[in-house]
Amino acid sequence: MKRIAENSFRVADKVKLSEITTVENYGISDKELKKELEKVRRALGKFQDTLYAHGKYGVLICLQGMDTAGKDSLIREVFKDFNARGVVVHSFKVPTELELKHDYLWRHYIALPARGKFSVFNRTHYENVLVTKVHPEYILGENIPGINSVSDIDETFWENRYRQINDFEKHIAENGTLIFKFFLHLSKEEQRQRLLRRLALKEKNWKFSPGDLKERKLWDKYQDCYEEAINKTSKPHAPWYVIPADNKKGARLTVATILLEALKKYKDVQEPELDEKIKANLESFKQELEKEDK
């Protein structure tokens, strides 16, 4: 099997998405990819147990991608061996009335992981420079001072948003949140095939929306927005990873492997040592329990 190296997918310099493959050759079958994932996710589950006991870091995983990119199934398969209390998934959809009464980062800030836990953002704060940039009329619903019409939303507005997002991520990173951002890089043809499967399979029909076809017509515009967002916000403390996503099983293994490889670098994440007094009396505690009436 081809080695999955974390730095091979991390965005360290400017990228052009059209020049990055959406298909990765792992050199093994889908069945073997699944077996490899099982091993990696068990190791991730053990790391999460230690992270919880250590209690100093939270882990934020951001997943972005076009419709049908495989975000939901990736979450299901990669985090299957986690303690259920150790990972929380947040799916951010159209902002609610309450959320619109706050700034656009508020709902993401309150969903950040507690120390010792993982939070997975299924669609993220980046929707605010993606879907809103493709559909700037959505910004008007935020009631931002000085923004009274679409014509008020200029390039300075978007540059400010990128700056705000970078500041947000720098702040949380400096306070113990480990950030991983994954763009599931899907080809337009593979999306077409997945949409056709949603229409062909009765059990998948519920996932289909006519809006999917409307958004598909804006494919190139979305790709431009993703490319700009990735290039402006991939930082050492909050890196983007571009993951070939035409093969779902391969994408899941790649994300899981990158997470494990990167997290293992935090050598300070260790289970805490028992208090010396408690450690010295372990045998007496054991004897006390053994003497109890059954």
Rank of each mutant, 00 (worst) to 15 (best):
S8R: 05
V11S: 01
S18Q: 09
E19Y: 02
I20N: 03
V23Q: 14
I28P: 09
K31Q: 10
E36D: 10
V40Q: 03
V40P: 00
R41V: 13
A43G: 09
A43F: 00
F47V: 07
Y52W: 13
G58M: 08
V59C: 07
V59E: 05
L63V: 14
Q64T: 11
G65I: 06
D67M: 02
D72W: 00
L74F: 04
I75W: 03
E77C: 10
V78T: 07
F79V: 08
D81H: 15
D81G: 09
D81E: 13
A84H: 13
G86Q: 10
V87H: 06
V89P: 01
H90F: 10
V94M: 05
V94K: 13
L98T: 14
L98R: 14
H108V: 13
A114W: 05
R115C: 02
R115E: 09
F121L: 05
N122V: 12
T124D: 05
N128C: 01
L130Y: 07
T132P: 09
G141I: 05
G141N: 15
N143T: 00
I144T: 06
I147E: 04
V150F: 01
I153E: 01
E159N: 11
N160E: 12
R163F: 15
I165G: 08
I165H: 03
N166E: 05
K170A: 15
A173E: 00
E174M: 04
T177G: 07
K181C: 08
H185F: 07
L186Y: 03
S187E: 03
E189R: 08
E189V: 09
R194I: 06
R198D: 02
N205G: 07
E215A: 15
E215F: 03
R216Q: 13
L218C: 05
K221Q: 13
Y222K: 14
S234W: 01
K235N: 12
H237K: 13
A238F: 00
A245D: 14
D246G: 11
N247T: 14
K249V: 03
G250L: 02
V255R: 00
I258W: 02
L259M: 12
E261H: 15
K264L: 09
A280F: 00
E283H: 06
F285V: 09
L289R: 12
D293C: 01
